[in-house]
Structure formats: C-alpha cells, structure tokens
Amino acid sequence: MTRADLADHIRLSRTTVSEITASLLDRGVISVSEDDTPRLGRGRPAEILTLDPAAGQYVGVDFAHRRVRVAVANAAHELIASDTAPYEQADDWPTRVDAAFALIERMAEEHELHFSGVLGVGIGFPGPFSPRLPRGESEPVAEARRAGAALVVSSFERRFSAPVVLDNNTRLAALAEAAWVTATEVDHLLYVRLSAGIGGGVVVSGRLVTGATGLAGEIGHMTVGGHQRDCRCGKRGCLETVASIGAVLDRCRDAGVEFDGIAALAAAAEKGDPVAIGALREAGEATGHVLGSLAVALNPSDIVIGGEIAQIADVVVEQAAATIAYELVPVGGAVPRIRRATLGDEGGAIGGIIALLRGTPLLAGYHPSVDSPPAEPRLRRSAP
C-alpha cells in the first residue's frame, strides 16, 4: 500500500503515517518500491510500502508426546520452513527442549535461516495443562506439567530474547484449522487429534474456548460406552484407551497381529489387512460416539479429525462420520461437515504462529498462558 492508502485505511493523518513508516523503514521492517501502475501526468510515482520478509521470523513449536514440530514464518507472514524431530515419550523436558533447539539449528542450515530477528515464539504444550489450575501438593502430575511449561517458556525466552506464547498444542491445532487460509473463519468447530494422546479444541460462536480453568477440549478423557480399559488419567473407558496410537496397536496385538509402530500399521491398512482395518474402524466408531454427543450439544458447522490415526486410512474418518450421523438429532436436515484435518502434523505449530500474529477474531477475549504481542495480519503459506 502507499502511505496515502494507509492513511485512508487506518484514519490517521498522512503526516503521522509518514512518521511511523519512516521509523519502520529505519528498523528494516518494511521496504519501498515504486508503483508501476500506468498513470497520467508527469508527477513522481507513488511509493509502495511492503513488509520485508527478511526482517524477522515467527517460530511455532508443537511438543507432542513423541516428537517436536517446528514451523517458521517470515515477517511477511509466509510459512517458509517446517520440520520435525523425534524423542521418547519418557524423555524429560530439558531433553525435549534440546531436541527442539537441535532441530531449529538443522533447519537454519538447510533453509539458510539466521534466526537473529525472531519476533515471537508460539509453543504448543501437550496433555491437560492450564496455569489457571489451583496449585496443590495433591496434584503431582499437574505440578510437573506446570514446571515443564515454565522451563519451556524460560528456555525459549533466553534463546531468542522474544515474546513467548504457550498453550495446549491441540487447541492451537484447532485454531489453525479454523483460521488457516480460509475465505471466512469457521464460527462453530469441533476438533480432535488422534495421536499418542488425544485432545481437542472447540470453537463456539467464533471464539476459541478455554473453559473456566483452561481445560476445555479434553475430548480424549470422555468415556465411551462398552469400553473398560484403564486410562492413565485414572478413569476407565476413555476415548484415549480406544483411539490413540497405543490403543490401536494394543487392539491389533490382542487380535493376534503385532505391528512395530504406526508406520507398520499404516502399511498394513493400505494393503487392506483385516486386523488393522478392524482396529481403525473401532477407533473411528468410538471417536464418532464422543464427537456425536458433543455435536448434539454444540451444533458445530465443522468437525475436524486430525492426528496420525486419522491419516492412516479413510476408514477412520468414514466410520466416525457414520457414527456421528447416527448420534445427531434429525432436526432441520442440517449436518456438520466432517473432514480430515487439512494441516496434518503441522497444525499445532502453525496455530502457535497464528496465536502470535493475533490476526484472527477467534482470539478476541482469549487468555493464553503467556501474553502475546499486538494484532497483526493472518498467516499464509509462501509461494513455492
């Protein structure tokens, strides 16, 4: 835009806009080019102001149970790099942070990124976590997560000397699915991620929901009728005991076929292995029962199923959709759109970047774990 365009758009005087843009030019945040639009007369061409992509980066980090995903956007809000690195589920938080930093260093070399101008870091944190939960010695798991989150935030603050936003990684993935490169943001959305653990996110009336203590969206610990396996949360029959990666592999093992991890399960499902397909169908059905009950209460327009289990075979989403359709109240003929997640494994990291940019009404009135910087435009994927 030209300075005159900016002045008209934000309703400031041209003198004020010129002062602000002069400061941004001095800091290298924006660059200038001449307007090559054909014009009448002999006047000087207007100058076009553009965000300088090289002025800095936004970093999104998603710590899942077994891997870390890092996504990087430039100052023009284009996604320029994304990669992942594994670790063990039992690894402590210093080890996981070290894995993230090693991945960032590798990405810097492979993509020729310097990371000297990081403008913010958005971090997705796994498991039920909220800093608003009351403290108590009787809650050692919650206190351990709180300590882990504090270590993660302080480590990234020291590394990059930039603002850090931390929130539940699955809720950030829901944010990304509702706001990533869409003509209009989704006002009513249910999101579930079927991975090593299971979590979710809820968008109601155009707002990402956290709940009273910040634990909204813990879909993985809703119980499913007919299932009695013990869950790590202390209950029985949670969705996580049926539709997580470990649960599906256990179901196959119980049926007499043992797969050495998610890749082997995916390969078997692609070949139509009946044991693999049966376990995945059971996971889809259980997921559908939970999402169907939530859909009756919340009336979403979109239901999005993500995570590795959803990516393995169409049967997971297809079975979930069929079960949801059965659960819905047949009023008015309106049914939600049910789909596999668009962003796959990148969702949580991209959601972290979107939370930094704050260019979405979905975050109006939202209180993340760490305050984020002022509003800026929405993220978009750069051209190849």
Rank of each mutant, 00 (worst) to 15 (best):
E218P: 01
L328I: 11
L194Y: 02
S155H: 09
E346Y: 07
L249H: 09
V17Q: 02
D187P: 05
K271R: 15
S369C: 10
M222K: 03
A46Q: 15
D91I: 02
V304H: 13
R145G: 01
L249F: 06
C252D: 04
V290E: 11
V17M: 13
G197M: 10
P38R: 15
A212F: 14
A55H: 14
A173W: 06
V290I: 14
I262K: 12
P368D: 07
D250G: 06
E346C: 00
Q228I: 09
G220P: 03
W180E: 04
I20Q: 03
A81D: 09
R3V: 13
E19L: 13
T170Q: 11
A295W: 09
A176Y: 07
R207H: 13
V275R: 03
V335S: 11
G359Y: 10
E19S: 10
G206E: 01
E143S: 13
D260I: 03
R281T: 11
V59N: 00
A81Q: 09
K235I: 00
G333M: 01
A334K: 08
D302E: 14
N169F: 01
V121A: 04
R132T: 04
V315D: 01
A179D: 14
S369W: 08
S116Q: 10
H289R: 14
T223Q: 12
R132C: 08
P45T: 06
P368Q: 02
G120C: 08
G148Q: 12
R135F: 04
A297G: 10
G237A: 05
A276P: 08
F156I: 03
I198Y: 01
P330H: 07
V335C: 02
M107N: 11
E157C: 05
A297Y: 04
V296L: 10
V61Y: 06
P126Q: 07
G365L: 04
E105D: 15
G206I: 01
V242I: 14
G365M: 04
V242K: 04
P94N: 05
V72P: 06
S154L: 00
L133K: 12
A267T: 09
P86G: 10
I10A: 07
S382W: 05
I350K: 08
V141D: 12
D314M: 06
R69V: 11
H77Q: 13
V192L: 07
G246Q: 12
A247R: 13
L103S: 10
G211Q: 07
E139V: 00
P94E: 14
E327Y: 15
H77K: 10
D26Q: 12
V59D: 05
F129E: 02
R236Y: 00
D5P: 12
A75R: 02
P274H: 09
I354W: 01
V316P: 01
G43V: 02
A375L: 01
L357N: 09
L208D: 06
G365E: 02
V61F: 04
A54V: 03
G237T: 00
I10V: 15
M107E: 03
S195W: 13
V181S: 12
